[in-house]
Design a protein around this nucleic acid. Structure first.
Length: 221
DNA sequence: GCGACAG
DNA sequence: ATCTTGTCGC
């Protein structure tokens, strides 16, 4: 797929912060995509040589049957350190490289990390979504910001994630008696719809099949 | 100032 | 993220 260069990636954290505030204005938290959804994609990152090399893997699955349709892997030198709140500046460059190699355009992309559940409401899922102007969902394995009530142990139950008296996402139980995941809107999708798709992409394990398959690709280097 | 802190 | 084996529980 073709990707437009939206901004420079060689930045200081203060410059990155300004870009986040600019891009945040473009984030859409409403459903703005066409159905039926035929393809969903997952992205996963890996690092080599003490983190100096970034490795991104993209897995495109058919929906709703979740069968691997296409895959791609991209490597490049890591240029940005891991700083909470600025994860996207470290991972997106390699992800874009991997996405450019794909021919099957996914209808929705599930990202490994937060969407709107971010200090400035621009987690990696939002950042990627705005850059490629595609629907994205943030599915994180741990909390960045926000508070929530205990989530019932039954699969499918969830609790709103609150930050500054604002609902920024959902703490969702994708598997009974297993640690929940943090779901939030990335771009062009609402929270209810995001929760629905995450559950439909999680038939058996805690994480969506999309990210699980992308993870295997990234590991089987 | 202190504690928290996606991957 | 990454370094790493076996082990407890459904």
């Amino acid at each position: 797929m073709q990707i437009k260069q939206r901004h420079d990636w060689n930045l200081t954290t203060s410059e990155a912060k300004i870009i986040q505030e600019e891009l945040q204005k473009e984030v859409l938290t409403e459903d703005k995509f066409t159905e039926p959804v035929k393809y969903v994609a997952g992205v996963d990152m890996g690092f080599e040589a003490n983190g100096t090399i970034s490795r991104a893997a993209v897995a495109v699955l058919s929906f709703p049957d979740l069968q691997l349709q296409e895959q791609s892997i991209a490597k490049r030198a890591t240029t940005f350190p891991y700083i909470p709140g600025f994860l996207s500046f470290r991972e997106i460059p390699a992800v874009l490289d991997a996405l450019e190699k794909i021919n099957t355009i996914p209808d929705i992309i599930l990202c490994d990390g937060q969407g709107i559940a971010h200090p400035r409401r621009l987690g990696i899922a939002c950042h990627l979504g705005v850059i490629i102007d595609k629907p994205t969902i943030g599915v994180a394995k741990s909390l960045l910001i926000g508070k929530h009530q205990e989530v019932p142990q039954i699969k499918g139950s969830w609790q709103p994630l609150i930050h500054k008296s604002e609902t920024i996402g959902a703490v969702l139980r994708t598997r009974s008696n297993v640690k929940p995941v943090y779901v939030s809107s990335g771009h062009r999708i609402s929270l209810p719809t995001a929760i629905d798709y995450v559950l439909r992409c999680t038939p058996k394990y805690r994480l969506p099949e999309t990210t699980r398959i992308a993870d295997k690709l990234a590991s089987a280097r």
